[in-house]
Computed example of a mutant assay.
Amino acid sequence: MSQVFPQPEPESGLTLRKLTHLIYGLFALGLISAGFFGVATIAAIVLAYLKRSDAAGTVYAPHFDWIIATFWWGLLWFALSAIATFIFIGWLTGLIALVWVVYRVARGWLALFSGNSPTPGF
């Protein structure tokens, strides 16, 4: 008598890889919409914080740390730029902060597509 082993079911639901893509996508949507969908960026950060422990020890954990750090540093630089508008350099520093945040999101997302962790640095 031969045994019949059940076939593994295809992955269903939200895997960590899909979740990480969703987080990057929501963050990018918030940036592209110039704040109109700012809730998308907040949702991305909340998801990153909520699922951070699930990703611990995987290749996705550095991505969660990367996006969280990008958010908080970006928020700091945007706030300082808003204050600096009173001395007329805030628009320039705000533009630099925006370019930096877009660069970090793109760099992290591209690393995710290639299956790597985002490299530390700039």
Rank of each mutant, 00 (worst) to 15 (best):
S2M: 06
R107V: 12
Y60M: 08
V59A: 15
T58W: 02
A56S: 14
L50T: 15
W77Q: 06
P62A: 05
L26E: 04
T58L: 04
V46T: 05
I68M: 12
L14D: 09
W66Y: 11
W91Q: 08
I42L: 13
G38E: 07
A56N: 11
P6M: 07
P8F: 06
L29R: 03
V102T: 10
W91F: 14
L50D: 09
A34Y: 11
L26G: 04
I67C: 10
Y103W: 10
H21P: 00
L110G: 10
P62M: 08
G38I: 09
L76T: 14
A79H: 01
T58A: 03
W66F: 09
G35S: 03
A40W: 02
P62N: 07
W91R: 08
G30P: 04
A84G: 13
V105A: 13
L26P: 00
V99S: 04
L95K: 01
S81I: 09
W72S: 06
G115D: 00
S117H: 04
P120E: 10
W109S: 11
I87Q: 12
R17F: 09
A28T: 07
Y24F: 10
I96A: 15
A84I: 14
I42P: 00
A97W: 09
W73S: 12
A69L: 12
V39M: 12
P8Y: 02
S33H: 01
P8C: 02
I83R: 11
M1R: 13
D54K: 10
A82C: 11
P10K: 08
Y49C: 03
A69K: 14
V59K: 15
I83S: 11
L47V: 02
T70P: 07
R104V: 07
V59S: 13
R104E: 03
L76A: 15
G57S: 08
T85Y: 10
F122P: 14
F88D: 06
W100V: 11
A79W: 09
Q3E: 15
I45E: 02
A56I: 07
A79S: 13
F113Q: 11
W77H: 11
A82G: 15
K51G: 06
V105Q: 06
V4I: 14
P62G: 05
T85I: 15
